[in-house]
Structure formats: structure tokens, C-alpha cells
Design a protein around this nucleic acid. Structure first.
Lengths: 337, 337
DNA sequence: TTGTAAGCGTTATCAC
DNA sequence: GTGATAACGCTTACAA
């Protein structure tokens, strides 16, 4: 059995209070006492029980990172940065994947699961249904929303400017002389914020360039997966006039889309230019390398952790919105002919 | 403040014992009592505090998954499967990344961190230094090793047959007529098990085919990253005679290697065939699509979770070794000319 | 079948 | 500065 505070106290011939003071680095402990206690701790190989500590203090030292799918590169790269950032703040991270399951997202927010196991939630949700967030409102689990959503003043919130990011991507396609610019990633049924915003950016950019494109050029994609990108691009390539550029709402979609272009016997960027959003490492090594809108995930992660720790300290502080920077990275998939 | 067991008991006019019985599904509770308690639970929106429960029972319901880097596709795809498998067994998963840091691996195994927060560790380590495992031996945290290592009878252990997997990959290159077969992924200094075993498989296959290749054909790679694959391949392509095939110890290395081949003005598979190990989704969409040795990660994940739960129940059961299946998947990167 | 009470290993409130 | 001791919220003997 692991040694307890009491064991150490007995061995060192002091009270548990004193041992606790030493362990938690309390200032007012005489050097002699400290010595004696330290020796006992080492002798017994004592380590404080975090569960007991948690029960007493109410702090677990853990954060939950909730993402749709951890194996989507954008999320796993984000998770890496979040874990690192959390470590700097003394927190550990539990990862939950909701797997496109709204019910599971709901349960998580409601605390039906084993909430209370963590001090706060970093939530990168599928949907931004207000009702969902309303539900959470009554619970007092600190929450920071990641990556999307319109800021409504109720929750802390770290996101990029989706409209502008999309506009920048499409403007880039315009700049290299493309006129028949399609898009992949709209979501037909649900009120997801990200696709709506990116669609808005796409349309704005077309307007600004004075371009008109067929309505079918805006293609839906259920998930932002390679497969969905592939299928959507195949459909686009069958249209006439055929698009000469595709703006994908994620790099993963773009990877699938590029593959579809090749399978159709065409080439990127000569026949069809492709640009994505995210800047995952995969795109830097693909052939051709993928032009994209780079999101600063280390920044996003650090800000998110900073915000959540602040909120844990001060639950009633006003909600803050942090807009993360983005920048266009032009690579081979949009090289000029 | 969240409601406690005591609050529910007071409202329902019963003892905490009875409430606890109802909550934990104890059989011998009268229907009337159950009714009354249920109503109180709902009224107060009561949810048991998992921390208190843990302090009492010693079980946290959490597993730790320890990997070098969560953003390496193989690990993130494995993590997805582990999280899913754990959920089926009623466990949640905390992910720790050690980031190629042996010290951190050591601390984790020693329980210097906040161990005791989870019931068991699924450990996919960098190194298999016996000393490291010896250290853990004294602690009684259930441990299952993933993916590598020679089985030494001390720990549960889910892995593929690395030697055979490597041999299969190289034999495939032989079968399509390649004779100057290089390898990327040996680790120069440290005693990592996986690279050693895969190197052994590589050499065995060459021998079986009666092929002799220059010693420089076996190239090291510090990490199994795209960049390392790129650099290693660049070096290989400068050799003369130039290799006509490269066996990469991971798909990520292979992705980098393919890119290096193109940047050298050569093509895959015509000039240089490439095969990897892992079967990450990225390889299915790359151009050309990547031939690889497919590892059954859902199987690995399920077995690992099954083993750890068994060990949690019965700490002194003899260690078991599970060998996960693998199979060669031939795609475009090794297509015959 | 249900109630009472001890105790899991901490931290925190008192005294001294 | 240090020592008793009461919580934290739950499970579980032991009684009734």
C-alpha cells in the first residue's frame, strides 16, 4: 500500500498538519522540521494522493478537451498544443471525442457524464446551437469555446475570423486569375457556424471580384474528411462549365479533392487550383503541396488554456473573445501557370 | 453548489445508505423507496461525485494512454480506437504525450506525476530499456505495453510481429522486381526495440532473396516524421548505385521520402518504389497512394483495453502477449511498371 | 430492507 | 510554528 500523510507524520514524529505544510510548500515551517519530514517522505517514498486532495480542494488539475474526432489532423495537432500549453499552467488534459454525436456533446455539457472530474472544458463543438449552450449555462463548469461560433458574449471564446479567412483564400484564387471558383464544405441541414461563415466569406470574395458562378459550385460536405472532399470534387468536375479552382473549407477536404482531380485525369494547379484552410502538416508534403490558410494553433491553444485558468480563478469575470491570427500560405496547388 | 447524497436523503426522508443503494443499482430496495429516492434525485439534479467515490473505492474509471506524440497520425488513429474501446468497458482515457522525452516517460512510470488518478496505463513507449520497466515493477499500477518490445513475460503486451511485418514489406519489393532496396528508420544510438526488429526483418528479407546491398542503404531516422523521411531519402538518392526501392519504417517517413523522390525529379514507383508501415489514412490519398503494411489498430486498441481491465481485476495474473495481425496492402507506390 | 457510523487521504480551522 | 480535529462526499460493515 502507498504511504499516506499519516504514515509520514508517525515516522517523523510530527503532526499531519506539519507534513501537509511541508508537502504543499507552506512558508512557515522551521528548517529542522522540514528536514525531518523530508527524510521521512523519502524513506517511505510518499506521494500525495491527488484524489483525496481533489475531494478536499475541489480542484482536479485536469482539463477536458472535447473534439469531434481526435484522428482528424487539425484536432490532433491542436491537442498536441493544448496538452503542452496546459502543462505549462500545471494542468493535464483529458481528451473526449464526440464523434459527430450531438447527443454526446449534450451529455458532456450537461455534466451527465463524469463531469466534476475536470476543472474546465475546452470545447470545439460541431454545432453552436444556442439551446445547447443554454443548457450548460446553469451548470458552473468553466467553458471555453474553440475555433468557431459567433461570439455572443456569454462564453470565453478563441476563434479565427472565419469570414475573413475564407475571403482571403478565395481572393488568392482570384489573384492568380481563376474565375470559375467552386467551394466544398457547406453543410446543408444544420446550423453549424463555421460552414456558414466560410460560405459567407466565399460569396463576399466572389462579389468583390465581380465574379458570378453557378449555384452548384457551392458543394456540401457532411464531415470535413478526405473522402467527403473526394466525392464533392468528383461532382464538381462533372459540371459544365468545369470549375478552374476549388476552395475547400478544410485541408483534409482539399487533400481528397486533389486526389479526385488526378483521378479525373486532370492536374493541380494547371486545370484546377486548390486551396484549403488549417495548414496541417500533411499539406506541406502532399503533391502538389497545398496552399492554405494557416491557423496559429499554438496561439489558439495557449489563449484557450490561459482563458480557462483565468475563469477557474474568477468564474464571474466577463466573457472574453480572442481572435486568433491567420495568414494565407501559397504553395504549389495554386501556383500560377 | 451541486447536490450531495445527503441532500437527496434529506429530501426523500431516507438514509444516505438507501440513496446510495438506489444510485449504485443495489438489488434489495423496495419499489416504493426507489420511487421516492428517484424523484428526489431528479428534483435536485443529483449526480454522484466521482472523486469522492474514487477516494472510497480506489477506482477512478480512467486509463492513461501514453504516446510520444499525439499528432503523429498513427498515434492519433490509435487514440481514437482506444478511446472508443475504453468507453465500451466503462473507462475514460487521459492522453499523455512524452514528446521523445525519456525523463518524462520515467516520471510517468514511477508515478511521480499524479499517478493514482488512473486505474491503469496503456504505454506506447519510445524505449524499452529494461531498467525503465524495472523501475515500474515495484509500483502496482497496471500496465499494458503497446506496439513494440520483445515480450519478456513481465508485462501484458499487445504488439505486431515487427520482424515479420518488415520482412513482408521488403519481400513485396522483391516480388515486383526491385533489387537495390534501401531502408529508412534505423535508430543509431539507442536501444529502441521497433527499429531493431524492423531492421532485422529487412535484412532477413534481403538474405532470403539473395540480394546484397551497400551498407549505406540502411539509413537512420531520429523520429518517424515526414521531415526525417524526406532528409533520409534525399541522402539515399545521392548514392550510387541509386536505390530502386525504399522500405520506410513508418508511413510518415514514406510520405516524406516520396516527396524527396519527386523533388529530385524522379518518380514513384517507376524510378523508386516506396513502401511503409502503419496504413494511416493519409497514405490512401497521397499521390501515388502508398503501399504499406496495415496494422489492425482497432484490434490492438480493443485487446489492450481488454487486457488492462483484466489486470485491474486480477493484478497477479500471469502476463499475456497478444500478437496483432498485419497484412500487406499494395497500392500505387509499388505498382509494377 | 433500511439506518448508523466509520473511514478513504487530504486540507483547513481552530487552538495553543 | 505546530498539534488536534473537523470536514470534503461517498461506500460499506454492522446493527436494527
Amino acid at each position: 500500500m502507498p504511504a499516506t500523510l499519516r504514515d509520514v507524520a508517525d515516522l517523523a514524529q510530527v503532526s499531519v498538519r506539519t507534513v501537509s505544510n511541508v508537502v504543499s510548500g507552506y512558508a512557515h515551517v522551521s528548517a529542522r522540521m522540514r528536514q525531518r519530514v523530508q527524510r521521512a517522505i523519502e524513506e517511505l517514498d510518499y506521494r500525495p494522493n491527488p484524489v483525496a486532495r481533489t475531494l478536499r480542494t475541489g480542484r482536479t488539475g485536469m482539463l477536458a478537451l472535447v473534439v469531434p474526432e481526435i484522428d482528424v489532423p487539425y484536432f490532433s495537432e491542436l491537442a498536441r498544443d493544448v496538452i503542452d500549453a496546459a502543462a505549462e499552467f500545471g494542468y493535464r488534459v483529458m481528451i473526449d471525442q464526440t464523434g459527430h454525436d450531438h447527443e454526446r456533446e449534450r451529455r458532456l455539457l450537461m455534466g451527465d457524464d463524469r463531469a466534476m472530474l475536470f476543472d474546465g472544458i475546452l470545447f470545439s463543438p460541431l454545432v453552436t446551437k444556442s439551446e445547447l449552450l443554454d443548457m450548460h449555462r446553469s451548470k458552473h463548469m468553466p467553458l471555453v469555446l474553440l475555433g468557431e461560433h459567433e461570439f455572443d458574449g456569454r462564453y470565453d471564446h478563441v476563434a479565427i475570423d472565419n469570414v475573413r479567412a475564407a475571403r482571403d483564400a478565395v481572393a488568392h484564387l482570384v489573384a492568380i486569375g481563376r474565375t470559375r471558383i467552386a467551394a466544398i464544405g457547406a453543410q446543408p441541414m444544420e446550423e453549424y457556424a463555421t460552414p456558414l461563415q466560410r460560405t459567407a466569406g466565399y460569396e463576399t470574395a466572389l462579389e468583390e471580384a465581380g465574379l458570378e458562378v453557378p449555384a452548384e459550385y457551392a458543394t456540401p460536405a457532411a464531415h470535413y474528411s478526405r473522402t467527403d472532399g473526394y466525392e464533392a470534387a468528383r461532382a464538381l468536375l462533372a459540371l459544365s462549365p468545369r470549375p478552374d479552382a476549388i476552395f475547400c473549407f478544410s485541408d483534409l477536404l482539399a487533400v481528397g479533392a486533389m486526389r479526385a482531380v488526378f483521378d479525373a485525369g486532370l492536374s493541380v494547379p494547371e486545370d484546377v487550383a486548390v486551396v484549403g484552410i488549417d495548414d496541417i502538416e500533411e499539406g506541406r508534403f502532399s503533391r502538389p503541396s497545398l496552399s492554405t490558410v494557416s491557423l496559429d494553433t499554438p496561439f489558439i491553444a495557449r489563449e484557450a488554456v490561459r482563458r480557462i485558468t483565468a475563469r477557474i480563478e474568477e468564474p464571474d469575470a466577463p466573457a472574453e473573445e480572442v481572435v486568433a491570427p491567420h495568414r494565407l500560405v501559397a504553395r504549389e496547388s495554386t501556383a500560377e501557370a
